[in-house]
Design a protein around this nucleic acid. Structure first.
Lengths: 155, 155
DNA sequence: ACCATGAAAGTATAAATATGCAACATATAT
DNA sequence: ATATATGTTGCATATTTATACTTTCATGGT
């Protein structure tokens, strides 16, 4: 019930330009959800959705940090294996495969979570190219990534 | 005058955890700026600073989109080097880190500017993987890139 | 079955934020 | 020099958003 609403909110946020909670509320009503602004405010807080100034001189609600979105999905959706993530090495590089659309978010989690081990990442839609620092072993990388991605699978 | 204030705001935002405009206002007062909440609200809007929910169950003001910040810096601060770009080598590859969103643009600058030295580039959002031609030395690459990116920093 | 516990949501309101308007300053043009 | 435009700010207030408090509902334990 609530989860469906959260999904709807995310959908509204990402597909339409909304500048106030009342606007979001109206969209939710159209979709058959009845709730008050108070509840919406709490939902937005939980999903870390924020109202940010935009270029057109107004404000717009957005999911500002990908990592936040991931946290949210992971939290709400424990049962399904959102994070079937695999890693495979090739030479000095590693390639991670994720669910479609998740590469960017996870890559930035890695970027911020393993700065000692990696030089950088490049993310497509479902693939992450991971460039380790020179001298960092594969096992060290796996060790560190396991903290960021607990159920990572080595291919 | 106003610019100094904007700088101070940015500094406060990035270095301390503030959760309301009144808090920011107090910090500004300590630094000798006198202004009202109304003005601060306008400043924040201009700089696209937003209040976003954080992990600790509260809210925090941040510069949510780096691109916005860059726009702002470009506007306010033309002279300074917006593009802090670093390069690091790993094996036969090089990885450049740029400000988020700039990788594509810079990569194509490199593509067109150093065809003798590189095979190609792959750009993510803030990372460029640079594949040099066989036999090209690291110093040669740096030499060439320095022409394209004058203030590139070697890690 | 009964109670405790906790999540979820509404109500009312506090708190926080945005903005219309007027005043003033500074620049630009006539 | 005067007029016109442009930008910045405070004041007051409207609007918007967050939350304390309460009720309800579901769940698990005894």
């Amino acid at each position: 019930m609530k989860n469906q609403r959260l999904e709807a909110i995310k959908d509204i946020i990402t597909h339409t330009k909304v500048g106030s909670q009342d606007e979001i509320l109206m969209h939710l009503n159209e979709r058959g959800f009845t709730l008050t602004q108070a509840t919406l405010s709490r939902d937005l807080k939980q999903m870390k959705i924020a109202k940010v100034p935009n270029d057109q001189g107004g404000y717009i609600y957005t999911l500002p940090f990908v990592s936040s979105r991931d946290t949210y999905i992971l939290k709400e959706n424990k049962s399904t294996s959102v994070t079937e993530i695999t890693i495979e090495f090739s030479g000095s590089l590693a390639v991670l495969k994720t669910k479609p659309g998740y590469a960017g978010g996870i890559a930035s989690d890695i970027d911020s979570g393993a700065p000692e081990e990696i030089i950088g990442t490049i993310a497509g839609d479902d693939t992450i190219l991971l460039i380790p620092k020179e001298g960092v072993t594969r096992s060290r990388i796996i060790e560190t990534l396991s903290i960021i991605i607990p159920n990572i699978k080595i291919v």
